[in-house]
């Protein structure tokens, strides 16, 4: 049943490989960017009321630096997603018609491409980057030292949470992509999506910094599972029970969002105007 999606999985992987030179430049410059971020946070902690070693909203400066470094790697490896733009192009160029008459699901095609890309990125870049980061941060004493079983349990849950994050991201991109059926153009929707995710997922800063009410609300949304929660699982700041709860919440959201996407698509597809072709 799933066999027919294999070509798209492969295509996602190959497409990611094709731009590996870009990706290398990206990696080089990102190191500088992370350095800027790290020093920004160091300045914040140095200016803190309790001095350098005080915690701010439950984060020591060591944890904050680990958080920044790991979030950057995580976003790079996990969110390689062109779903919104591809839908937008399919609508604009009318190629959407080709997919509607083929015996595969339009949605399934994007999920497969997303997984292929995730797999390639995780093996090619995730493996070396995460290893380097964990070894460095760990030997600096920035991460807690647990027993082997506990560490591998966290690592396993982190990989699972990462998979959920990629699927959540793809589902949200797909929903915003389908909204392009109504607006006929993807610019505004894309920038709305990017802002929403980077603010509410804890990429910009951990949700612990938000005022209490907002924080509580956001913690029930799907976004925290897309960046903050996987990272805090990897940093072993959540215990196993809390980690499991996070993954479960993400899984529930994936189902909800996929259902929403299905409903939306069946409504939107009636609005299709194939422009010339």
């Amino acid at each position: 049943m799933l066999k027919k999606y294999k070509p798209f999985l492969r295509a996602g992987a190959i497409d990611t490989m094709a731009y590996r030179f870009n990706i290398l430049i990206w990696a080089g410059i990102t190191v500088c960017e992370v350095a800027c971020l790290v020093f920004l946070w160091l300045a914040v902690y140095r200016s803190g009321a309790g001095g350098m070693d005080a915690q701010i909203h439950g984060f020591s400066y060591r944890e904050m630096i680990s958080y920044v470094v790991l979030t950057t790697i995580f976003n790079f490896v996990t969110f390689n997603n062109d779903t919104l733009w591809n839908i937008n192009t399919d609508i604009k160029k009318g190629t959407i018609g080709n997919y509607l008459i083929k015996p595969i699901s339009y949605r399934g095609k994007f999920s497969a491409t997303c997984l292929g890309s995730l797999l390639t990125m995780t093996v090619m870049f995730g493996l070396p980057f995460y290893t380097a980061a964990l070894v460095t941060l760990g030997s600096l004493g920035f991460l807690p030292e647990l027993s082997f079983p506990a560490f591998f349990a966290h690592l396993g849950l982190f990989l699972l949470a990462g998979l959920c994050a990629a699927l959540l991201n793809d589902a949200i991109s797909y929903i915003f992509g389908v909204l392009c059926f109504y607006t006929s153009s993807g610019w505004g929707l894309n920038s709305l999506k990017v802002t929403l995710i980077s603010f509410l997922s804890g990429t910009l800063l951990p949700l612990a910094f938000f005022p209490a009410g907002l924080r509580e609300l956001v913690s029930w949304m799907p976004f925290a599972g897309m960046s903050q929660n996987p990272i805090l699982i990897l940093m072993m700041k959540y215990d196993l029970a809390a980690s499991l709860r996070c993954v479960a919440l993400s899984a529930v959201w994936i189902v909800v969002l996929e259902l929403l996407a299905k409903l939306l698509f069946s409504h939107a597809v009636r609005k299709v105007t194939v422009q010339g072709g």
Binding site: V194, S198, L204, F210, P211
Partner: peptide, 24 residues
């Protein structure tokens, strides 16, 4: 419609970055 969404998202994104600085 897209122009309206773009305008809204632009204000929203500036608001978010400002909020982040404010929270810190």
């Amino acid at each position: 419609k897209d122009t309206v969404v773009a305008l809204f998202s632009f204000f929203f994104s500036n608001l978010c970055s400002l909020a982040a600085v404010y929270f810190i």
